[in-house]
């Protein structure tokens, strides 16, 4: 298999008849025998930016873990197709090599492992080749400068004693180095002050410019001021209950999540924005309302 870089689509929405980058069909996921995802449908094409919004406990993060292959998140039915391949049986590292990457909400610390050593090993693993040290350094230093990450960062242990902001910067730095075809950002905006939010968002936008599709999972609208999604989905009780364009996010911010439930369910496609954006999408069905 060639490297994810060459696999990546050459442009966003370049060919609507092509296989979608990610196609989730009626996905059900259990965590310790409890069903958390109850029939998720979502399609993401190369280079697109999608936002998933929803309350805490709605299952947003479960979707990101299930996509990345956490062993405790069991797919009980449905499909997860990435570049046309079913990935639910794949280990997380196989998925990473296919081009998926997850920026964690709560990145764990790895004591005793320096950031530089960690970055080199993981980037080499994903790219499938040993990048010469010099080349690696140059690339890394350039990205660090963009993300406002200091040199001393490299010799610290991964996430060990990091502040919330530092952790998120490191997540984005990693994703920038990994250069995935789909970046899943799980509550990346949480715990960030406004400056950190800006820099992290710039990092995400740079990823997007480099044709990485973005799946941004968030509780708040505020990151969407900096990263503008083409598609916004509302997550509730384990599935997507409404989809729309970026204006949906603003509406959520104004009106909260209640109206979605009251106005948009149970009949799909009756929301103020949902049907509009759904039909304007270039992909087969990137936006689904009240799925299933």
């Amino acid at each position: 298999m060639t490297s994810p870089n060459t696999n990546k689509s050459t442009g966003s929405n370049s060919d609507s008849s092509a296989i979608p980058l990610l196609e989730i069909v009626d996905l059900h996921v259990n965590v310790e025998d409890k069903e958390i995802l109850k029939g998720v449908n979502l399609t993401i094409n190369a280079g697109e930016i999608h936002a998933i919004m929803g309350r805490n406990g709605s299952g947003k993060s479960t979707l990101s873990y299930a996509l990345m292959g956490h062993p405790r998140y069991k797919v009980t039915s449905g499909k997860m197709l990435y570049k046309g391949q079913e990935i639910s049986e794949m280990s997380p590292d196989q998925r990473a090599k296919l081009g998926l990457a997850l920026a964690f909400q709560y990145p764990v610390s790895i004591p005793g492992v320096s950031v530089s050593n960690f970055l080199r090993k993981t980037v080499n693993a994903v790219r499938g080749r040993d990048i010469p040290v010099k080349e690696f350094r140059l690339e890394l230093k350039a990205l660090m400068a963009k993300l406002g990450v200091k040199d001393e960062f490299l010799s610290r242990y991964v996430n060990d004693g990091f502040s919330g902001g530092e952790k998120k910067r490191l997540e984005i730095l990693q994703l920038s180095m990994l250069n995935p075809s789909l970046a899943i950002l799980d509550e990346t905006d949480s715990g960030l002050d406004i400056d950190a939010l800006k820099t992290v968002s710039e990092g995400v936008n740079a990823l997007s410019k480099a044709d990485t599709a973005i799946l941004l999972i968030t509780h708040y609208q505020r990151m969407l001021n900096y990263v503008q999604p083409q598609f916004v989905h509302v997550f509730q009780d384990g599935k997507i209950v409404a989809s729309g364009g970026s204006e949906l996010a603003l509406e959520l911010e104004d009106r909260g999540y209640e109206w979605v439930t009251s106005e948009m369910q149970p009949t799909p496609g009756t929301g103020p924005n949902a049907t509009k954006t759904s039909s304007s999408s270039s992909s087969p069905s990137p936006a689904v309302v009240g799925a299933k």
Binding site: A96, L102, I110, G112, K121, T122
Partner: peptide, 25 residues
């Protein structure tokens, strides 16, 4: 920890070795 490292492309053995090396650091 394993999931984190594996999501970054390391297989299970590599991920474990990294954790162990860190522990011995």
């Amino acid at each position: 920890q394993l999931f984190y490292l594996m999501s970054r492309g390391l297989n299970q053995d590599e991920a474990t070795a990294m954790i162990v090396n860190g522990f011995f650091e």
